[in-house]
Deep mutational scan, measured.
Amino acid sequence: PREAYIVTIEKGKPGQTVTWYQLRADHPKPDSLISEHPTAQEAMDAKKRYED
């Protein structure tokens, strides 16, 4: 089974940042970016789909 994890990042100019959620996995390479999402819920949904 595949495993993934969610990383929170800040995008934008200082003082005007927006939080994004990255879905990452250690396949095919360590810390590979799988997808980016504007909400934590979307990231969790993507994580479930990826791991299923």
Rank of each mutant, 00 (worst) to 15 (best):
W20C: 08
H27Q: 12
A40Y: 15
G12V: 05
E3N: 14
G15A: 05
P38F: 07
I9P: 01
S35H: 01
T19H: 07
Q22Y: 03
D52P: 06
V7C: 13
T19I: 14
D52T: 15
T39A: 03
P1N: 14
V7Y: 05
E36N: 04
A4D: 00
R49H: 09
G12I: 05
Q16T: 09
I6W: 02
A25W: 04
E36R: 01
A46Y: 04
E51H: 07
K29M: 14
A43H: 00
R24L: 09
R24F: 14
R24K: 14
A46I: 01
Q22C: 03
E42A: 10
K47C: 06
T19Y: 08
K48W: 08
E36V: 07
L33M: 06
Y21N: 00
P28C: 08
P28H: 13
K29S: 13
K11G: 04
P30M: 09
V7M: 07
D26F: 07
K48Y: 08
G12Q: 05
T17Y: 11
G12L: 04
A46K: 02
E36W: 06
T19C: 08
S32D: 04
R49W: 11
Y50F: 12
I9F: 06
A25D: 04
P1L: 13
K29T: 14
L33V: 13
E10P: 05
T8S: 11
S35I: 01
H27V: 13
A25C: 14
D45G: 06
G12D: 04
M44F: 12
E10S: 10
V7P: 00
E10D: 10
G15H: 06
A40L: 15
S35T: 03
R2K: 13
I6T: 01
E3C: 14
A25T: 15
R49F: 09
I6C: 02
R2I: 11
I9G: 02
R24I: 12
I6K: 00
Y21I: 01
Y21C: 02
D52V: 11
Y5M: 04
A25Y: 04
D31A: 13
Q16E: 13
G12A: 04
D31E: 09
I6L: 05
R2Q: 08
I6V: 08
E51Y: 07
P30I: 10
Q41E: 14
K48S: 09
A46E: 04
H37Y: 07
K11A: 05
R2H: 11
D45R: 10
L23W: 01
T39K: 03
L33P: 04
I6S: 00
T8D: 04
V18K: 14
V7E: 04
T39M: 03
T8Y: 06
E51S: 07
I9C: 09
D26Q: 08
P28A: 07
D26K: 13
S35F: 01
V18M: 10
Y5R: 14
T17R: 10
Y5K: 06
V18R: 08
R24D: 02
P1V: 13
Y5I: 06
A40H: 15
K48Q: 12
V7Q: 05
S35E: 02
A43K: 00
R49Y: 08
Y5T: 05
A25R: 11
M44H: 10
V18Q: 12
I34H: 03
G12R: 05
S35C: 05
D26M: 12
A40Q: 15
T8Q: 12
D26G: 11
D45H: 09
D45Q: 12
R24E: 02
E3Q: 15
A4L: 14
P30S: 07
I6A: 00
R2N: 09
K48H: 10
T19N: 06
T39Y: 04
Q16I: 07
T8I: 14
H37A: 01
D52C: 11
A4S: 09
T39N: 10
K11P: 02
R24T: 05
E10L: 14
E42D: 11
Q41S: 10
D26C: 14
Q22K: 00
P28Q: 07
Y50N: 02
I34M: 03
D31V: 04
L33C: 08
A40K: 15
T19L: 12
R24Y: 15
G15W: 05
I34E: 01
E10M: 11
Q41V: 09
Y50G: 02
P28E: 07
D26L: 12
K11Y: 10
D45P: 00
Y50W: 15
D31L: 06
D52G: 14
T19A: 06
T8A: 14
A25P: 00
I6D: 00
P14I: 10
D52N: 14
E42I: 04
M44K: 09
P28R: 08
V18T: 13
H27A: 07
K11I: 08
T19R: 10
T39P: 00
E42P: 00
K48M: 11
D52A: 15
S32T: 15
W20I: 08
E3D: 10
E36H: 02
H27D: 09
A46P: 00
A4N: 02
L33S: 02
S32N: 08
I9E: 04
E36Y: 03
I6H: 00
Q16V: 09
K47H: 05
L33W: 05
Q41M: 10
P14E: 12
P38V: 10
S32V: 13
S35W: 01
K29N: 11
E10K: 11
E51D: 13
K29Q: 13
K29W: 14
D45C: 11
A46S: 04
E3A: 14
L23I: 06
Q41T: 09
W20L: 06
T39W: 03
V18S: 10
R49E: 10
Y50R: 03
D52I: 12
